[in-house]
């Protein structure tokens, strides 16, 4: 193994240990309800409610594309009502949670890393500590909890809108009626499809927020340092989503 590859692996190992350590500190800070409790609702609104428009925008176009794409694949080979099945299954189990997660990794992960990173380099994090606040209780826990709770809510809206967009596309642009679309949707639907997607999105939310917080708290001085932390938070958030996606597929399917 070349020295550069070895050093990169060592650095990655160090980062994994760092994430583990920070996660433990965050878990310990959960007991400090008096600090994070009052901040939770504000973060839920900021990270969740304010993210609904972007999630719905993505869901609409995902539904449209899936409908058109499945029609293209099925025409002449499979009955066209399978469009409903494919749109439903794909939006609920995969594209709804993953694409919403990716979009929120950009919006939420970047916003958290930039905010905490700026606080770090301007000594606001130190100031918090000198006022006897624990940085994990005040900054990390409310954000991670809010994202874990709100990503599934946002994803649920995205699922509904994605399927609706697929249905509207199917009845307007394809040779398909509403009963046919619903037939396909119902025939292969299982309740697990929804909760599988929602459980995944909760884990995506926690991971994205945690990466944002970690990178923010590790920000080095200066605008460049904050920018770098923000970029890393988004990249790590997206990587975490893909790894967790595979993990849940292995564990739950």
């Amino acid at each position: 193994m070349s020295p550069s590859v070895a050093s990169r692996i060592a650095a990655r190992d160090g980062f994994v240990a760092h994430v583990g350590r920070r996660s433990l500190e965050t878990a310990r800070a959960l007991a400090d309800v008096g600090t994070w409790g009052p901040l939770l609702v504000g973060q839920m609104r900021r990270l969740g409610v304010d993210s609904v428009p972007i999630a719905l925008f993505i869901a609409v176009f995902t539904g449209i594309v899936l409908s058109l794409l499945s029609s293209y694949i099925f025409t002449g080979t499979v009955p066209l009502y399978f469009v409903g099945a494919l749109v439903g299954k794909t939006v609920m189990m995969e594209l709804g949670p993953v694409l919403t997660g990716m979009a929120l990794a950009g919006r939420v992960g970047a916003s958290i890393a930039a905010e905490i990173g700026t606080m770090k380099v301007t000594e606001q994090v130190d100031a918090l500590e000198t006022l006897a606040y624990d940085r994990n209780s005040y900054l990390v826990v409310p954000r991670v909890l809010a994202a874990t709770l709100m990503f599934p809510v946002v994803t649920a809206f995205a699922m509904a809108v994605g399927v609706a967009a697929g249905w509207v596309t199917a009845i307007n642009l394809l040779d398909l009626s509403t009963p046919e679309f619903l037939k396909g949707l119902k025939q292969f639907y299982r309740f697990k499809d929804i909760w599988f997607g929602l459980v995944k999105s909760a884990s995506f939310g926690g991971a994205v927020a945690l990466m944002g917080c970690l990178r923010g708290l590790d920000a080095k001085a200066g605008a460049e340092g904050v920018g770098l932390s923000t970029t890393r938070a988004v990249v790590l958030g997206c990587e975490a989503i893909l790894v967790l996606d595979a993990f849940w597929a292995l564990v739950l399917l």
């Binding site: 000594e123 606001q124 130190d126 500590e129």
Partner: peptide, 14 residues
């Protein structure tokens, strides 16, 4: 820390 006040170089106001 409750017994020590800290005035930061650039104030570090939130």
């Amino acid at each position: 820390r409750g017994r020590i006040g800290y005035v930061f170089q650039f104030a570090a106001l939130f």
